[in-house]
Simulated scan of single mutants.
Amino acid sequence: MEDPAADAAGINNADAEPFKIFIGYDSREDIAYEVCRYSILKRASVPVQITPLKLSDLRNQGLYWRERGKLESTEFSFSRFLTPYLANFHGWALFIDCDFLFLSDIKHLVDLVDDKYAVMCVHHDYTPTEATKMDGVVQTVYPRKNWSSMVLYNCGHPKNKVLSPEVVNTQTGSYLHRFQWLEDDEIGSVPYVWNFLVGHNKVDDKDLKNSFPKAVHYTLGGPWFEDYKDCEFGDLWVKEMEEYKKTLCVN
Rank of each mutant, 00 (worst) to 15 (best):
A8S: 12
A9R: 00
A16P: 00
A16I: 00
F22A: 00
G24I: 02
S27C: 09
A32L: 08
A32D: 14
Y33K: 01
Y33R: 00
Y38R: 04
L41P: 05
V48C: 02
P52E: 01
P52S: 01
L53Y: 05
D57K: 05
N60K: 15
R68F: 02
G69S: 15
E75A: 12
A87D: 15
D97W: 12
D99M: 06
D99F: 06
L103V: 13
L103I: 13
I106L: 01
K107V: 10
L109D: 07
L109V: 06
L112Y: 04
V119Y: 12
V122C: 15
D125Y: 09
D125E: 13
D125L: 08
P128F: 06
T132Q: 08
V138L: 09
V138Y: 09
R144P: 09
S148R: 01
S148E: 05
S149C: 06
S149L: 00
M150F: 06
N154Q: 15
V168T: 09
N169R: 01
T172W: 05
T172V: 05
E186S: 13
I187E: 09
L197A: 04
G199N: 07
K206G: 09
S211K: 03
K214C: 11
A215R: 05
G221R: 05
P223K: 14
W224K: 13
F225K: 03
Y228R: 01
C231G: 02
D235R: 04
E240H: 07
Y244V: 05
N251K: 11
N251C: 12
